[in-house]
Design a protein around this nucleic acid. Sequence first.
DNA 1: GTCTATATCTCGATAGAC
DNA 2: GTCTATCGAGATATAGAC
Lengths: 188, 188
Amino acid sequence: MVEKEKQILAAALQLFVAFGFHGTPTSKIAAQAGVSNGTLFHYFKTKEELIIALYNDTKADMSAYLSAQINGQDRLELRIRKSYIHSLYWALENREKFYYIQQVHFSPHVASIPPEVIAAQTEFHLGLLREGIQAEVLRPLPVELLFTLVSSHVHGLYQYLTASAFTADHRKTVIEESFVLLWDMIRK
Amino acid sequence: MVEKEKQILAAALQLFVAFGFHGTPTSKIAAQAGVSNGTLFHYFKTKEELIIALYNDTKADMSAYLSAQINGQDRLELRIRKSYIHSLYWALENREKFYYIQQVHFSPHVASIPPEVIAAQTEFHLGLLREGIQAEVLRPLPVELLFTLVSSHVHGLYQYLTASAFTADHRKTVIEESFVLLWDMIRK
DNA sequence: GTCTATATCTCGATAGAC
DNA sequence: GTCTATCGAGATATAGAC
């Protein structure tokens, strides 16, 4: 990816999160990225295309981080645990990106994302859970239900941790204790 | 509230949910409500004011419904249970409204809502949980943490239930079984 | 209170030189 | 690839008659 393209994406992230899609004209994005209006439209044919490209870029970033944290050799519980904990760490360290993903999900732009793109990104997590059900480590619930319970747990904890200021130590403790609560809920 | 005002709010709800804030011009809202553009701006001085008024109206609707379902005489577990179950029923029966609340939360418009308005709306739930901790029925966790875990559980289950088509009977079963999972997680 | 008509403005997107 | 300049569309909000 070209340098300017990255700058545009970075500027768009900041501004979309701060002012919303409607409140962020492409002219401001270009200005903040230090490029001209015309250049922005050279890289992204429309504003909509920019919104989607930023979404994909952000998701890819998160997926890459998570993949790097999880060792396929670990036993299942540890892989699920790491997946949980590092999802939270990533979210806490990349709050704008995490927020942006949700912002897109609660906007009409989500309709422009091919379903298979979204599916591909959840496939990893579904796989872990499926494996857990199969191995009779997890409760025999529909895997999508397990997935939604785990994801929403992560989202909830994120809300809690960002609503107040905690020390990194305390955050770690809360995350680990919350995982135990979650694990006891889903394990067989 | 005047008839036309209601029509405008109803039209705004439909259109905002379908096309987003940016994708919904006030002219379309007025047209769909069957009133003129000028009339819309008679009731709501700005588009922003309409967005916020719709948010407050929607929240009030949900609160009124929940209050009506819960009997203060019931024992605590039942009140929490009813609060959980009926939150889901309301959400399932009022999907546009439930979605709209989240849409506002993930938009810059949320900044225009006075914090005390949001606080007032969660106070009821926090009170229930506080009572549970005090009575040593619930785990001695920070009440905000309990609250976020319960809320996100509701949101997650809502996602699951709306992602596929289930019969009303099956929905009921899933909701009740999920409450047991949640309850076992938070109870002492 | 409700309408029609319109002012004013800003934005997304393009054209074309370099 | 990058810029400047600009067009045309469509938005919010107002004015003023009824």
